[in-house]
Nucleic acid binder design. Structure first.
Lengths: 160, 160
DNA sequence: TATTGTTATACTCTATAACTATA
DNA sequence: TATAGTTATAGAGTATAACAATA
């Protein structure tokens, strides 16, 4: 439908697509954080769509890659997962051949997690796509402002 | 359990609570945005718990309060709700006596939304609690840094 | 024909409790 | 007794499709 039609119809009818005021919401840190997070996650998913990696899966691969002999509990504590929710996530990654679970000799309740060769390859490719994604975010903000943003976000996350 | 016990046991056993490296994650805008949003929303819910208002409900009350003769579609467009998910939310607010839906004379498909007197009173009290909550966030960051943060978040939210 | 608002439904994320096998 | 990991389950939040009433 053309804009002229829409405007004309709105003028003659009563209810119409309104210009809505958000009031003080755009000045609220919580509201803006939420909007930004939704936007950035949507862009993340678009940028990494070819790898079929959601943010949570990507972060798990990174943490496993950066720590030798990790256990499921360690990953959960580091990333804030409930262990009950971690089980299906890691099973998916294992079934995709990205992660290997090896029985631990010293404690037979647990397995140590590591990336397979295929997992390392996929993560390396995903990291390149993510680095480009991150670079675009920083370009949008300016590199100095981007560092400042990370510092502010860390301050919000910390503490009581 | 005392720390000494934990440390001693960890030394003699194999697997232990590890110091886990997050690798590059704390340098990623998406990761830090998510952590900060989770933290801030948890604090929001604590600060407004006595009013039984979740962030989405609070934002709906604010938008209705700041716009005369709003329709459901307008609120959905402004706040990014699906209309199917808005229906139960606004019904809850109506049943709590906070919002009034008046049949629209000019378009009988729709109703105009407005706050009841009780809705205005509750929102006013919730706003005072939220202003205090926001003040604490800004204190944590410093007021100049807080303004900068809002600007960066707006830049992330905007555009393609 | 298009739009408003509703219901039904499904998928994801997240949270808790109960269970097993170990320790 | 306490811990690691699993399953089952329930609650949010979010998405689409189909529908009735109205424009």
């Amino acid at each position: 439908m053309a804009d002229e039609d829409k405007g004309a119809r709105a003028a003659r009818r009563g209810p119409q697509p309104m210009k809505v005021s958000l009031g003080p919401l755009p000045g609220y840190i919580g509201y803006m954080l939420r909007q930004a997070q939704l936007t950035v996650f949507a862009r993340f998913n678009a940028a990494l769509s070819q790898f079929d990696l959601k943010p949570g899966q990507f972060s798990v691969l990174i943490v496993i890659d950066h720590n030798a002999s990790l256990r499921a509990t360690d990953v959960c504590n580091a990333l804030g997962f409930q262990k009950a929710n971690f089980a299906p996530l890691i099973r998916t990654l294992e079934q995709r051949g990205l992660v290997l679970r090896r029985d631990c000799e010293r404690d037979r309740r647990t397995q140590t997690l590591q990336l397979t060769a295929a997992g390392k390859r996929l993560l390396a490719r995903a990291m390149r796509a993510h680095d480009e994604f991150e670079r675009e975010l920083c370009e949008r903000l300016g590199s100095s402002a981007a560092r400042g943003l990370l510092d502010r976000l860390a301050e919000l996350t910390q503490g009581p």
